[in-house]
Design a protein around this nucleic acid. Structure first.
Lengths: 200, 200, 200, 200
DNA sequence: CAGTAAACGAGACGGTACGTCGTGTCTTCTG
DNA sequence: CAGAAGACACGACGTACCGTCTCGTTTACTG
């Protein structure tokens, strides 16, 4: 968030008829930096291009839209948060949520994610990509937690979708209202309810 | 939704040193129409001004930001959905959610709401207003349902916030991903979980 | 050519719903300066906009094309060279040509004119405007010299067009090849031929 | 003019460490075609490269500028118009001019020539090459007509330059204003004046 | 009942960003 | 080692909006 500043007075000419990894990295880093500093409001292709010392066509060549770029920036944050079922869905969800919020809070990823959701509200293609590709991939692990619980008989299989929606929405609400810090106390309660067995 | 088209060749000059209600109505109607037709992507002050046959300063005079205008457009939809506690929180929530989704789906309000959430991601003031004024007002009734349930002893008072967050997030997830139709089946399950008594 | 440099940190806001003369003047001065310094190669709307401290839309609002702007820059050089017939066509033409070349050489007008001719080679509208409006206006006086000579019986009326073409082309050749200085010696000879009486 | 369209899916790989004549021909043909269809406005190295199926570096390797390429395209039009003095300068010039205009009008050469003149207005090197190499070569024959007339004593030797300038300018005026058709009637009159003996 | 104050429409202003195109350079890979 | 292929940084293109600023007009409220 600080190294990739305006720096890079390095000339990155073409390295032949193929993608220049240095340019791509510089663009992603610049996008991340812009988001970290100015959020969605300052996130323009021009700004990223300037900050990266890259030409706009280079950006458009590899990312067909702002949303595309946002998704890759988000994905580039390695910090893959794994989630392995331990036998207690509520505890697994609580644990995972805390890690996710820490990830959102401690890196520019929270802002990136908010930008992505905002972008999807004005760009139908972005919304489709979000719904059909980005989210399913990101939610693989969490869905796995629910599937494992269902396999154990803890929750009904047909309720996975609804519970997943509750889980996603809960996170979205706090990140979109920028209340990740204040909202932490609500996590255990919410996760217990989402994970509650149906036969009570 | 179609009457307020480009129409309005009516001259609405000043009516003296006070706000002209006809102009305000025309602006709100134009904003609504623009949102209905082009969504957040087409929602610009210029577009609203053109459509309303109003000067841009007239808009800025009464609404200090796009978010301000969006909130009033949303509020202008009279269809206030009331929610009176009947003694069964789960049923009350289910009922209310269905009405809300019907409202979002059958009017431009869904698009307005999505635009508002998107706008709040780029405008900190808008986010603050959303969090501290708009949402609390809108959620008065729903909060009332939870309060009544807590008063009855059905749910713990200290869990109201978490359950409310689950409720809000669930709705946001479906409206933001434009899945209000497909998601209906999940409503009863989710509402039952949100309303579940803690002592099982 | 020097006063209108990068200077002008003056804010020229709108003066209401009408053209701001200060902006127009600044744009014309900037265009003139850019042409004087960089010639046709540096003449871009962006460059003029930057130099003038004006927005691009302001330029496009009042001049629909680069050629349009060039023509007005050329016309703005007051130095209207008058040409009043004295009874000797050859001498009149020689005199007028010398003044014209001095005008082209001593001001940025020569470069402006060359830019205009170049522009007309890529923009059909510019060519049409050049042919049907710009040139006829500029050539009114010279045509008057020929008409007076014809009225005196010195040259046949039906030869005016051909002689005018010779006159124009002669000037174009020298300005387009940037040989106004070296070519001065040719003026009297050429003008004598153009003005020669037909009956020899 | 139409065969060399987008065609040429032929692979023209390197033929070793020397210039590939097929590539050069394809590039010249493409340049000619682009000029014929879109004129100077569409004449970009990119466009020629695309049309020729050639790499841009291949073009830059053999022609150091657009002007360079234009000159070779113009020269490649074999239709060398010869001009042999017959003893009557006026008739020779008239004849030569008609052939030149037919050449300019019936082939893309007119557009090429206009492009070349335009290009010379933004590129000083192109202007120098035009003045010192291209024009002298092209005008060898015409200059020969004047020289022969001077040798015969029909015109003074010291007036050759001025008369040549008149001749060139006359042609330029009509080609640059795209009036080759309408201007034909002026040819004989103009040529008679250019060729007029000085002692009248 | 004249004078003032404010809201109105209109739209120009200096800007920023858009997404595309062309520039001239560079590098890889193929023949 | 020439050639195609095409990526690269750069910057211009013409358009859309931004939020601000006057303008001239049209009332209603004041003194």
């Amino acid at each position: 968030m600080k190294a990739e500043k305006a720096a890079t007075p390095i000339r990155r000419a073409s390295i032949g008829a193929r993608r220049n990894p240095a340019s791509q990295a510089a663009i992603l880093a610049a996008a991340r930096a812009v988001l970290a500093e100015d959020g969605y409001a300052g996130f323009s292709i021009d700004a990223v291009s300037r900050r990266a010392g890259a030409g706009k066509p280079t950006i458009y060549r590899w990312w067909k839209s702002r949303a595309d770029l946002l998704m890759e920036v988000y994905a580039a944050e390695k910090a893959r948060i794994r989630a392995v079922p331990t036998g207690d869905l509520g505890r697994d969800l609580t644990e995972h949520t805390k890690e996710l919020w820490a990830f959102w809070w401690g890196t520019p990823s929270g802002r990136t994610f908010r930008a992505l959701l905002a972008e999807a509200q004005s760009d139908p293609d972005a919304l489709a990509a979000l719904r059909e590709k980005f989210l399913p991939e990101r939610l693989l692990d969490v869905r796995g937690l629910f599937a494992a619980a269902a396999a154990r008989g803890d929750i009904p299989t047909e309720e996975i979708e609804a519970r997943l929606a509750l889980y996603i929405g809960f996170n979205w609400f706090y990140v979109l209202t920028d209340q990740l810090e204040a909202g932490q106390a609500a996590i255990p309660v919410a996760m217990r309810l989402i994970a509650a067995s149906s036969r009570s």
